[in-house]
């Protein structure tokens, strides 16, 4: 399995300077359609292992800006706090990533260093750093990203599978629907109108999930339907091969391989369809 951590080069970790003050420049927005403003807060790093979330927690308890104005607490999403649920994704210093694994010691090792936080730009902002990623779940439904089992009654085990096949599927299956790959994708654009989702680019996450389910013995049954959807507008051919997705994916999912594999599958599917009708 691919296991290198690119985000946090271990040996470069500077020692924690406790008591240092770090500035957070945060893009705020009260709700959909409202204008965005920036607030800057100072946070004293008084614990080791501080990350963006723990600092946001500190700000939430007492949200006073550097100018001394009391503001509303910043709104953001989080869950597992160990980079496995995908909730806390945001744009930190211009790049998309999870805020729970964004360590302050890496981002702002010295007194007075500044960190900027923005919501993802490819999804509608709910409030402050929280965005609505429903479109990603919608896309999973659009591609029927499930195994069509006959029901939950006891019918024996699933198909046998080679360890190699399992490893490939496992790697794809660790996708936590965080949206990093979509945020960084130049072909994936903000679309607030849900009725257009079915014809807008699905993005690497969903393409890769389609590949995952097409690989499964039973999941294969729906492959033609998935491939049909992926041939339509917003399907796999809308990818422009910039390969940003694979570089920002926190789970190191081989997204560009998925895109190519699905490209091959739709090619063959189209040929089959042409000759079979």
């Amino acid at each position: 399995m691919i296991a290198t951590i690119s985000a946090n080069p271990t040996h470069a970790t500077p020692p924690t300077k406790l008591g240092r003050k770090v500035r957070f420049r945060i893009k705020r927005c009260e709700g959909p359609g409202k204008p965005s403003t920036w607030n800057t807060y100072t946070v004293t790093i008084d614990q080791k292992g501080a990350n963006v979330i723990s600092c946001l927690q500190q700000i939430a308890a007492n949200p006073v800006t550097v100018e001394g104005t009391r503001t509303t607490p910043v709104v953001w999403d989080s869950g597992c706090l160990e980079e496995v649920c995908g909730a806390c994704t945001m744009v930190i210093n211009g790049k998309v990533r999870q805020s729970c694994s964004a360590l302050i010691d890496h981002l702002a090792p010295n007194e007075g260093d500044e960190i900027s936080l923005e919501p993802m730009s490819k999804f509608p902002v709910i409030r402050d750093l929280s965005v609505d990623r429903q479109r990603m779940f919608h896309n999973l439904a659009r591609l029927k990203a499930w195994v069509p089992i006959d029901g939950t009654y006891a019918l024996g085990g699933g198909p046998k599978e080679s360890p190699e096949a399992q490893e490939t599927r496992y790697a794809l299956s660790t996708c936590m629907t965080c949206g990093c790959c979509l945020e960084a994708c130049p072909q994936f654009n903000l679309e607030t109108d849900a009725s257009k989702w079915d014809s807008s680019f699905v993005g690497a996450q969903a393409i890769s999930q389609a590949r995952l389910f097409n690989m499964h013995e039973t999941g294969k049954e729906l492959a033609p339907a998935r491939l049909d959807a992926l041939m339509g507008p917003g399907g796999v051919s809308d990818c422009g091969n910039s390969q940003n997705c694979v570089k920002v994916c926190p789970k190191h999912i081989p997204l560009t391989e998925s895109i190519a594999a699905v490209g091959r599958a739709v090619t063959l599917h189209a040929i089959t369809k042409f000759f079979r009708g």
């Binding site: 499930w146 195994v147 089992i149 939950t152 006891a154 019918l155 024996g156 085990g157 699933g158 046998k160 599978e161 080679s162 360890p163 096949a165 399992q166 599927r169 496992y170 299956s173 389910f213 499964h216 039973t218 999941g219």
Partner: peptide, 17 residues
């Protein structure tokens, strides 16, 4: 476990599958 297996959970495999 059987049911989860049918649902496609990528349980680790032995060399025989």
């Amino acid at each position: 476990i059987d049911l989860l297996d049918r649902m496609g959970v990528p349980f680790n495999r032995t060399s025989e599958g």
